[in-house]
Design a protein around this nucleic acid. Sequence first.
DNA 1: GGCCAATGTATCCAGTGGATACAATTTTTC
DNA 2: GAAAAATTGTATCCACTGGATACATTGGCC
Lengths: 193, 193
Amino acid sequence: MKVARPYHHGNLRQAVLNEATAVVRERGAAELSLREVATTIGVTHAAPRRYFPGRQDLLDALAVEGFSRLGARLQDALDTSSGYREQVRAVATAYLDFMISEANLTELMFATKHGADGDAVGEGAAAAFAPLLQMFRRGQAEGALSNRDPERTGLVFLATLQGIAGLVHCGVVPPGQLDDLIDDALAQFSGLS
Amino acid sequence: MKVARPYHHGNLRQAVLNEATAVVRERGAAELSLREVATTIGVTHAAPRRYFPGRQDLLDALAVEGFSRLGARLQDALDTSSGYREQVRAVATAYLDFMISEANLTELMFATKHGADGDAVGEGAAAAFAPLLQMFRRGQAEGALSNRDPERTGLVFLATLQGIAGLVHCGVVPPGQLDDLIDDALAQFSGLS
DNA sequence: GGCCAATGTATCCAGTGGATACAATTTTTC
DNA sequence: GAAAAATTGTATCCACTGGATACATTGGCC
């Protein structure tokens, strides 16, 4: 007896997140409208407010979810490769894949403005990047890394990937050059070669 | 007889740009409202539409202006320093200074969504980065650079700076670590220690 | 001096985020 | 098992925004 949609949706929160994710992916975070999401789901525009009091709360939730997915991808890249250089390359590729295939979401994740739940976003980011730092620590232990602070090196590496994605994202770099850029970046970071 | 503000503002376009710049600097591009800018200037909300048909046009104009200012700063950094390593450092510092002191504007400049005038934004960006490429070509000529494609090296360098600014921007990196990060990045890019 | 284009004004519309009072439903409690 | 309470969604406001259009004022050009 689930026809004629019951008064209670069931799991509105997840439905809203799914629809919002789709909208962001297709049209960007700026175009996201609470009302539109609500109506396409089939509820009043005020209904999602039970879960997301304001628009920014929804955006924050999307960002947290995004970092969670990114972290999983990075961890997976680490787990399915072995050896320092291979791991670095795998992580770099996974990171850039994510940022480019989910460009709008990435822009949202790294946006400046986060709402009351901004801490959660920050924690999500930290958790996502933890595998990277771990990798760099191992790299230093194996001597494959210069004797600098692995945390700093990791950050610079991260920054480089982030920047490459950004340049591709905003059109300064054509996607075709992407692999070459990764090669250059890796060469510079592996220290050797 | 300029009291009692004349019917014609005089140079509304520039006034709008100035006010919009201030708003973006203080509250970010997302908060920018054509109407608010118009009323604080003292004209009807429809008046600026003569110059900026839509909100996005104003944002694009701000981005173009931003790239122009950034380009000037980079060129200045190049002109007031000599020697490859010094120039690289000067440019990096100038670039990061700009991006951090004008964080909101930078976010706007590198945003994905540009309107009908998007080409102008792209050209502005290219013009701003021209001094950088020039510097890298010289660096290669002087042999201070590895024998890779200077264009690609420049892009990776650019990406790294961009990424560092982004990480600082979104709070992943505390500003205090900035100088150290720059040092690391420079060490990796100068190729020599 | 008078015409005409440029520049602002005055008003309208649809859509959005936000807030609040109210109704339907589920869960808890006795 | 029924009444009370908490949850979840609805219905309706408000202020504001971007956008569009018709109208008024001004300044330059002949």
